[in-house]
């Protein structure tokens, strides 16, 4: 974490172009970013860098976002990091994940393609920057 004043966001998505987009956009808006291409990579990087917030895709090869989300929930240190789901699968997923009793719902949910200013607003709201 080069700049300690900046809030750090971990972006997890298997699509390189989506990663590029989110990284560029969030950096343009004053965040530091870390990227990961799947759930395993994402969980590892979350443990190493303890980001302020995580954006997470659900459908990824290797290890899916669902499993990574559960792993985060199971980890004392990572449980309280807010997670914003950004995914292509329909809102049924939001319903699904919200109805699971054993895990807390993700903090926010966005469906691809995203409204980027809305995403930015939500992130700032979660991180109490506005």
């Amino acid at each position: 974490m080069a700049n300690p004043e900046k809030k750090t966001i971990l972006i997890v998505d298997d699509e390189p172009d989506v990663l590029k987009y989110l990284t560029t956009y969030l950096e343009d808006n004053g965040f530091a970013t870390i990227s990961a291409v799947d759930g395993r990579d994402g969980f590892q990087k979350a443990k190493e860098s303890l980001p302020d917030l995580i954006t997470l895709d659900i459908t990824m090869p290797e290890e899916s976002g669902v499993r990574m989300f559960r792993n985060l929930q199971d980890d004392e240190k990572l449980r309280n990091i807010p997670v914003v789901i950004i995914t292509g699968i329909s809102s049924e997923f939001e319903h699904f994940i919200k109805t699971r009793k054993q895990v807390d719902p993700p903090t926010a949910y966005f469906e691809k393609p995203i409204d980027r200013s809305e995403l930015l607003g939500k992130i700032k709201e979660i991180l109490k920057m506005i």
Partner: peptide, 24 residues
Amino acid sequence: VAGLAHTIKNLLMGLEGGMYMMDS
């Protein structure tokens, strides 16, 4: 059809990202 929608969403997101980068 559901799968197709998902793929298109990802493509749109990529296109949007490209446009954002060109714009900015």
